[in-house]
Deep mutational scan, measured.
Amino acid sequence: GATAVSEWTEYKTADGKTYYYNNRTEESTWEKPQELK
């Protein structure tokens, strides 16, 4: 299949934890999204 550009962006909180934000759905998660595995 075609490689889609991930909708997920990786961010870090002030205390250094990583989370992921989906630009399309406006969803955020602590877990690494399936698309990034």
Rank of each mutant, 00 (worst) to 15 (best):
S6Y: 09
D15I: 03
L36V: 06
T29K: 05
P33S: 01
L36H: 09
K12W: 06
Q34R: 08
S28N: 06
W30D: 07
N23P: 08
Q34D: 15
Y11D: 01
E27G: 03
D15M: 05
A4W: 12
E7P: 07
Y19Q: 03
T29F: 06
Y20R: 00
Y20L: 00
K32A: 06
V5K: 10
K12N: 05
A14P: 12
D15P: 00
E7I: 08
D15E: 09
E10W: 05
E27Q: 10
W30R: 05
Y19M: 08
A14V: 11
E10I: 10
T13R: 03
Q34K: 09
G1L: 14
Q34P: 15
K17C: 15
Q34I: 12
T18E: 04
K32T: 09
W8I: 02
K12I: 13
V5P: 12
T13A: 08
W30K: 04
T3K: 07
G16K: 00
A14D: 08
K12D: 02
A4H: 14
D15S: 09
G16T: 00
Y20I: 00
E31V: 11
N22Q: 01
E10Y: 04
T29D: 03
E35S: 10
L36P: 04
E10M: 09
L36Q: 05
T25Y: 02
S6V: 09
T25Q: 01
N22A: 00
A4K: 07
Y11K: 14
G1E: 12
W30H: 07
Y21G: 02
E31P: 02
E7D: 12
T29G: 03
Q34Y: 11
K37I: 15
T18I: 14
A4T: 14
N22K: 01
Y11E: 05
E31R: 04
Y21F: 10
K17I: 09
T25G: 01
K12P: 02
A14H: 10
T18H: 06
S28Q: 11
E27K: 07
Y19G: 04
R24L: 14
D15W: 08
R24T: 10
T18A: 06
Y21S: 02
W8V: 01
W30V: 06
T9E: 10
S6G: 11
Y21V: 10
D15Y: 06
W30N: 07
T25E: 02
R24W: 11
K37Y: 15
D15L: 04
S28M: 15
P33I: 02
A4E: 13
S6F: 08
E35K: 04
K12H: 10
T3W: 09
T13P: 00
T29A: 07
L36R: 03
A4I: 14
E10H: 03
T13H: 03
T3L: 12
Q34S: 13
D15H: 04
Y19S: 01
A4S: 13
Y20H: 01
K17Y: 09
G1V: 14
E35P: 06
K37P: 10
G1I: 14
E10R: 03
T25L: 03
R24Q: 09
D15T: 08
V5R: 08
Q34L: 13
A14N: 08
N23L: 10
Y11T: 05
D15K: 04
K32G: 03
Y19W: 14
E31Y: 08
E27D: 04
Q34N: 14
T29R: 11
G1R: 09
G1T: 14
Y20N: 00
A2F: 13
Y11F: 13
N22V: 01
E35Q: 09
K32I: 11
T13L: 05
A2T: 12
T18D: 03
G16Y: 01
T18M: 05
Y21H: 06
K17T: 09
K17H: 08
W30A: 07
